[in-house]
């Protein structure tokens, strides 16, 4: 089993709902809290597991804006785990989720260097590395209703731009979406083999207009023929 997220760039409006939903769930979750620095001061900053960046492609007027959420990709070849000297970082064999054991981490930052996707953030207060847990404490929690056993970010996303599922199962919604929509992984050349995939914006066929009547009744309004229609 390879659990992960699929992000639909065709519908992501860049609202940051997933990022804040993640923040609130995880600030009281297994790697809690997610410290905020200078929250009411001059340079507010903090620990987040999911961040949304915004890009522009092409040039005006043929430009497109892309909203681009990024969190841990739960890579198959998770170098972040390989390089961790303490064993704090680990990848669960049963579902591929990459986690950091807060009790083991020594805060050396090395794993974050190994992560191409900027998925790991050090919490200076606890001195430990934190990252997306794929909401492991939600998705297996049998006390939650089944439909709530989803990552917080997926539940929140108003544009349904985040899908959660098993990318090993060819019939999962995630796998199907990747197959049908040409989903891709980021920076494949680095060979991390990320589980998370991105669905590119759809291209939709032009709306036909040639089937419309060419008639031009417009010449003169008074000549317009009336149609007899009962009110």
């Amino acid at each position: 089993m390879r659990l992960g997220l699929v992000i639909d760039l065709d519908t992501c409006v860049g609202c940051h709902a997933c990022a804040t939903a993640c923040k609130q769930w995880n600030t009281s979750s297994i790697t809690a809290p997610l410290t905020d620095y200078d929250p009411y001061g001059k340079e507010p900053s903090g620990v987040w597991f999911n961040r949304i960046r915004h890009y522009e492609i092409g040039e005006y007027p043929n430009n497109k804006t892309i909203n681009f959420p990024m969190s841990c990709m739960h890579c198959e070849n998770a170098e972040c785990v390989t390089v961790c000297p303490t064993g704090a970082s680990y990848k669960r064999p049963e579902d591929g989720i990459v986690l950091v054991d807060q009790d083991k981490c020594m805060g050396c930052n090395y794993c974050s260097w190994a992560c191409p996707y900027g998925a790991r953030e050090l919490d200076r207060e606890s001195g430990t590395m934190k990252k997306c847990t794929l909401c492991v404490d939600r998705i297996y929690d049998e006390t939650l209703p089944v439909e709530d056993r989803q990552p917080a970010c997926v539940l929140a996303c108003p544009a349904h731009a985040r899908l959660f599922g098993d990318l090993d199962d060819p019939e999962s919604t995630t796998s199907r979406a990747v197959r049908e929509r040409g989903g891709y992984a980021l920076m494949p050349e680095l060979n991390y083999n990320p589980t998370n995939h991105y669905l590119p914006p759809r291209t939709r066929p032009a709306v036909p207009t040639s089937d419309l009547p060419r008639g031009s009744l417009a010449r003169k309004v008074k000549e317009w023929v009336n149609r007899v229609i009962e009110r």
Partner: peptide
Amino acid sequence: LANPKNAWRAFTRWRTS
């Protein structure tokens, strides 16, 4: 190290790290 109290663990993963 942000959390030096765990530094002793840094030898454990010599197979990979």
